[in-house]
Design a binder for these strands. Sequence first.
RNA 1: GGUCCCAUCGUCCAGAGGCCUAGGACACAGCCCUUUCAAGGCUGCGACGCGGGUUCGAAUCCCGCUGGGACCGCCA
Length: 446
Amino acid sequence: MSEVRVRFAPSPTGALHIGGGHTALFNWLWARHNHGRFILRIEDTDLARSTKEYEETIMSGMVWLGLDWDEGPDIGGSYGPYRQSERLGIYRDYADQLVGMGRAYRDGGAIIFRVEAGQDISFRDIVYGQIDVMSDGLREKDSDKLKDIVIIKSDGMPTYNYAVVVDDHLMNITHVIRGEDHISNTPKQILLYRALGWDVPEFAHLPMILGRDKKKLSKRHGATSIYEYRDMGYMPDSMFNFLALLGWSAGDDKEIFTREEAAEWFELSRVTRKAAVFDFDKLNYINQEHLKALAPDVRLSMVRPFWEEAGLPVADVEASRGVKYLEDALTLMAGRGRTAKEMSEFSDYFVSFEPVKARWNAEGVDKEKLKPFFAAIFSHDSWKAEELEGVARSWIGQHEGAKMKDYAMPLRFALTGMKVSPGIFEVAELMGREECRKRLEFYGLL
RNA sequence: GGUCCCAUCGUCCAGAGGCCUAGGACACAGCCCUUUCAAGGCUGCGACGCGGGUUCGAAUCCCGCUGGGACCGCCA
């Protein structure tokens, strides 16, 4: 069997959105699963809306998601150029050929392919199965007239349905994997393949992605571009994992996986036909799972930007306490917070005392009652969480009516300024004796 | 108006005639753990859109209905 070649062919008229990312992802999976090639082609024939900036945005969005391509406008390849605006002569030649064969005609500056009635343009889709269509169905809207296909616009640019056929054939694409909204374009493209005397590639259409209201995902639903998710603190691994699960599953119960695992298990024939709703709850869950499983240094690299964005002195702390301290802090945080951003917010007290002071002022606290407890803790030689807890428990055991939470909570407030945190003795151990002393003294508790 | 597609818990998936009194995950509720909150463990809630067939037997096959959706652009 020949090498599998698939492509993602975005139009640079906007950022990489969820739907595009989903399509790119499935193409990538199929290419990697088959050890084939993944091609990036830019469909910039809409002069008015295409920009170089968007082209770059789309590429960086793919890079962020972890989708690398083997041929493309930036890296070249043996089937280039990979930008449609640089292939105009090619489209022109085949269009002229079609005119020469009498299959197309000129109308003003445009070239139009003639659609004849009675043609069976059915095809077998890998995902959707047999799709039966007759050319007689290719009508003009609100009319019973057959609708011919414009292949070259009067401005000289090729139309989508035509350029995609020429490029997919010339670039040797074996599987055309794209959104379900293209199913009804496929028969028209088949007409063109036949007229040009070319073999038709395999088609696999992917289910659409819907918003919570089951309407096609749009700006109305909030974040639609891939980058917005990065900025909210979602990790590329999670987005990849989540998107892969929209319309596909390995068949078993494995739901948290890496790109490599997904590529290994992926099968086009297992893709679902029903449109899928984009569910934030599930995305959050998947992100949390990945955040939990991350290596300490990677987790820090994910959270760090959000600490910095909040104005916390991350670099200073790293210089004075070492990077290990920051990594350990986040290891303690693993499983807390669904996004890197949340995790950064829930752990700011490790980086600075300032946010703690802003949150808590020790109001209404019976300091005289607490002082002996803290004094007992500080009188102990070791500063290990286990021992600190032991000291705390024995002190409480010796004081009639004393409850752990009545002492642990004030300690938590003084150290973190929050009512929730990891085990407070572990927090204390990591922060270190001196930092804890400083914070408790500030509040007059020591 | 025409062509095409889809239809299992609220959501994402499993299910390719008997293994289904329909399974898993998220969400939700409760319990356990516990210095807090998460995490983790356990339990619960919860679906085959409707109607006809075919068959000994249908979530699975066929037909109709209903309900969604896509496309019909010199946008892609």
